[in-house]
């Protein structure tokens, strides 16, 4: 259910900043009427104050999201990038995180989605899965990875 709109943008190039990456992803959420008009701006603002970059196993991940009142229907979108864009680190450390995997979270009732959220974050600890996500160039392959990880 969290992946049923298939917001899956793979191996994007010509994306030079985190802002353009966030915009591109968020536009898909808006086109599917999953979020309110304030979602994009709210995600951007939040990312500045409470950044979501994670550097795990030499792969940079970001999980941009915002308050649930900007969300109409829960969904998780994905984008992989050929060249990393820089996000600030979630733990506030000075070094920027070169991000190539972005999971945009639109969450209406997070507690109900705990199971999926946990599985998703457990994936961050599996280097081979992250590497496969980075390498995958078609939607079917991506779906089969997340199916293997019991996300769908």
């Amino acid at each position: 259910m969290l992946f049923d709109k298939q917001i899956i943008l793979l191996q994007k190039d010509k994306v030079d900043t985190k802002e353009s990456a966030l915009n591109m992803l968020a536009n898909h959420f808006q086109a599917e009427d999953l979020v309110t008009d304030q979602f994009i701006e709210s995600v951007m603002t939040r990312e500045e104050h409470f950044p979501t970059g994670l550097y795990v196993n030499h792969i940079g991940i970001a999980i941009p999201h915002t308050d649930s009142d900007k969300v109409k229907q829960s969904q998780i979108g994905f984008m992989s990038l050929k060249k990393p864009v820089h996000f600030k680190a979630m733990d506030g450390s000075k070094e920027l995180v070169p991000v190539q995997l972005i999971f945009m979270l639109a969450l209406k009732e997070p507690a109900e989605q705990l199971d999926i959220l946990r599985k998703l974050m457990d994936v961050f600890q599996k280097k081979e899965v992250l590497t496969a996500m980075l390498a995958c160039s078609n939607i079917e392959d991506y779906l089969s990875i997340i199916r293997d990880q019991k996300l769908i």
């Binding site: 939040r46 308050d67 997070p110 507690a111 959220l117």
Partner: peptide, 16 residues
């Protein structure tokens, strides 16, 4: 606590 109280803190709360 996290920035919005919706995503990471939910996961961390579960683990703790």
């Amino acid at each position: 606590m996290c920035g919005t109280g919706v995503a990471t803190s939910t996961v961390v709360t579960g683990k703790i």
